[in-house]
Design a protein around this nucleic acid. Structure first.
Lengths: 243, 243
DNA sequence: AACGGTACCAAGCAAGCGCTTGGTTATCAA
DNA sequence: TTGATAACCAAGCGCTTGCTTGGTACCGTT
């Protein structure tokens, strides 16, 4: 064991105090349903009272939110239940008062994240009327989710997928299918001869390109903006020959 | 503790004998430089004698190949050194005769995988003369690597990236940059007005779309072939208005 | 005042983890 | 024949992990 200050495992968290010590809780804020705009806030409230996601201010909501943040930063396997407990401000054993085990916690996060993302995208689509604007809205919606502007924990759906047992994968998949149905419906309304014809294939290639932006696009940077990124991504499945 | 036969952690490996037992080696075959065609075989041989990758039939090459397979299937964190040792056919402690620690093993895999992929793509590009054929060759090359037809362990580069320490990330990145330079060079030779103008942005979106195919495309399926998938992916950054 | 439920603490167990140590065997050049 | 080196075994150490157990404080109802 080295006593270096650098973080050997690249968790992004360099402890300033790693001497042996008892568990100590910290403070905690935020959750999956942490809204950035007024519209999102009302959307979250509706989902909470519908029972689709847990209250961000309740104990379970805080737990899920903290775990989501850590899973996104360090990954499921490299995040310990003690890490999560410290982020919430409780002791590690208390976690299992709210969830059966660590994997069920991941499953709960994925379910709630999917539900919120789905509701947000449905709302964004209905705000537009023209097919092209609808597709652009979907892309923007997805980019906002990926880059933490609206749906905290969204990238977990891709990166930590295989950490779920097949049974839990099936549960999340059932929820996810409705999400992708929205995409498909929007892509089907493209005019003919605008690149990739098959809507299903177009959806898969486009979603792949978008989710990969998580690895390189910095929304804070002043070079490429999210708006122009969305427009360029649109060109991928909608050639510009038609207006 | 459950005694079920199902694999709770979804490792894909359900042991038929999980009673407490001493470590027992198994048999082992293959490595990173496991070629599928005659051309690939000579390419691997050249890289081996150049010292760029280790001999697939040597002890170190077998270790790297076995670890690459397991890291790809179960992920770095969920693969134990005992798993790797069993796959090679040695005991767990013997691993550290060849590498300093587990992370250095991952780093070695990524370096060798990158070098092989780079050499393969450079060869594929030089086999073509027209810009469009060159880009299609790159796409095909990437797809073959992703789906295990040419460069075993290739998807690890994406999925296990953050398991590396910053120092090791820098090492792999240095090798990776030459790989992406090939892409950029090919994309710069596109005619104007064929969709996304910026070659760098086109490369990022295209590579994202391709790497995501790992999650859904089944090259064995008799629906979509890899050839038509490559052609459709090409449309993403090369609109069909020009021949 | 008694009660039941929620939310949590305090302590620790059993198992599994990466890795070390000291020794054994096979190979091959001098 | 000797000796250096590579490849591996056998055993286990020290630590971390997910999770359990038994108990306590607080809350709103009745």
């Amino acid at each position: 064991m080295s006593t270096d200050a650098i973080d050997v495992k690249n968790t992004g968290v360099t402890s300033s105090n790693n001497k042996p010590q008892k568990e100590k809780p910290a403070r905690a804020v935020g959750s999956v349903g942490q809204a950035k705009s007024a519209e999102d806030a009302t959307l979250v409230r509706a989902l909470v009272s519908a029972g689709s996601i847990s209250d961000p201010d309740g104990p379970r909501g805080r737990l899920i939110g903290a775990a989501a943040r850590l899973f996104q930063d360090k990954g499921f396997a490299l995040t310990t239940v003690r890490d999560i407990a410290a982020e919430v401000g409780i002791l590690s054993g208390s976690i299992f008062h709210h969830v059966k085990n660590k994997e069920e916690l991941l499953c709960a996060i994925m379910l709630e994240v999917t539900r919120l993302a789905k509701a947000r995208m449905a709302a964004a689509v209905e705000r537009q009327t023209h097919p092209r604007d609808r597709l652009l809205a979907c892309i923007t919606c997805e980019l906002e989710a990926i880059h933490g502007l609206a749906v905290p924990g969204f990238p977990i759906l891709v990166t930590e997928w295989r950490c779920l047992s097949p049974a839990n994968q099936a549960k999340v998949l059932a929820e996810r299918e409705q999400y992708e149905a929205i995409w498909l419906q929007v892509l089907e309304q493209r005019p003919p001869d605008c690149g990739i014809a098959d809507p299903q294939l177009a959806r898969r290639l486009l979603l792949g390109a978008l989710s990969h932006t998580h690895n390189w696009f910095k929304p804070r940077g002043r070079g490429l903006t999210m708006k122009t990124l969305a427009e360029q991504a649109l060109l991928t499945v909608w050639s510009n020959s038609h207006h």
